[in-house]
């Protein structure tokens, strides 16, 4: 913050909030293509994650995305907890064994590397954001919350209808659309190094090259080995990473609302009875 004087920051903010300047960027959020809506197993009142899909999504993450993207809010133990991919403990121990984490300081005051335990979180591929930018040219965002942090606004009347349809999967829809939305035919204008993607929220060109190719991951369960399937699976996995208690939440919600409906009915009959003797 030191290089912002209080006055320049203030004028910047006032300009953004108060003055009648049009949003300067041509890449305002509304300009990208709306995501293509997909059927998700976790949508709706009774939505639950598809375990096999989360496991496949984890596989795509581990073999591919994790080279650049962190997953730093997820611990290895989360992979075996109820409501998630539900790998067996042996499988998760095997996954953790592939990772080394920095620990310490020890009794000599030194940091040391050791094998990851179940309680450790996924170590990031880069030591910090600056290192990632230096290596990649742009920061590959952490996957932990991305499915909730990237939700294109729906506009009117979509946002009203969403209340009744309970549509809240615009995060995974966006990620799926982005991963499958590269246009390889597109010819970049002179000097543009990014990759054209009409779904990208923050511009037309994204720094990430198309990350998925048909057949690049071998699925054990016979699911199609296509870009479309990989994108769908990893989007679902990212939704779980962002909202690991979704199943518990929806299940509790159903019980709470069922109770309130029955209780409300009884209270209503009591209310009718109490007031029946009084004109009102």
């Amino acid at each position: 913050m030191a290089f912002f004087s209080s006055r320049s920051l203030k004028s910047l903010v006032i300009a953004a909030a108060v003055a009648l300047v049009p949003a300067g960027s041509a890449f305002a959020a509304g300009d990208s293509k709306p995501p293509r809506m997909q059927d998700w197993s976790f949508a709706g009142v009774f939505g639950t994650y598809d375990r096999a899909q989360l496991q496949r999504g984890y596989q795509v993450f581990a073999e591919n995305c994790s080279a650049c993207h962190a997953l730093s809010r997820i611990a290895f133990r989360n992979l075996m907890e109820p409501g998630g991919p539900e790998f067996s403990e042996a499988e998760v121990r095997a996954i953790a064994a592939n990772y080394f984490v920095m620990d310490g300081p020890d009794s000599f005051g030194d940091m040391f590397e050791r094998e990851a335990r179940l309680s450790d979180r996924f170590p990031p591929p880069f030591p910090n954001q600056e290192a990632a930018v230096a290596a990649m040219g742009a920061y590959p965002p952490d996957f932990s919350l991305l499915a909730k942090a990237r939700a294109p606004t729906r506009g009117f009347p979509g946002f009203v209808i969403d209340i009744f349809t309970q549509y809240q999967e615009n995060g995974p829809d966006y990620i799926y659309s982005l991963l499958t939305g590269y246009d390889e035919e597109h010819v970049n204008p002179e000097g543009e190094l990014g990759h054209y993607n009409p779904y990208f929220m923050a511009g037309e060109y994204i720094a990430m090259a198309p990350p998925l190719f048909d057949g690049m991951h071998v699925y054990q369960d016979g699911s199609p080995e296509t870009i479309d399937q990989y994108a769908r699976d990893v989007s679902a996995f990212m939704m779980w990473a962002a909202e690991p208690h979704l199943e518990q939440r929806k299940e509790m919600g159903f019980r709470v609302m069922a109770f309130l409906l029955i209780f409300g009915g009884l209270v209503y009959m009591t209310k009718r009875r109490v007031w029946s003797a009084v004109d009102h």
Partner: peptide, 30 residues
Amino acid sequence: TVKDLFAMVLFLLLFSYFLFFLPNYLGHAD
């Protein structure tokens, strides 16, 4: 008391709907 209680239950139904099924609807993704 009984009338307010009934209204509270109706309101809690609305609250529960957003709380359990659309918890991020009223917030901002950023």
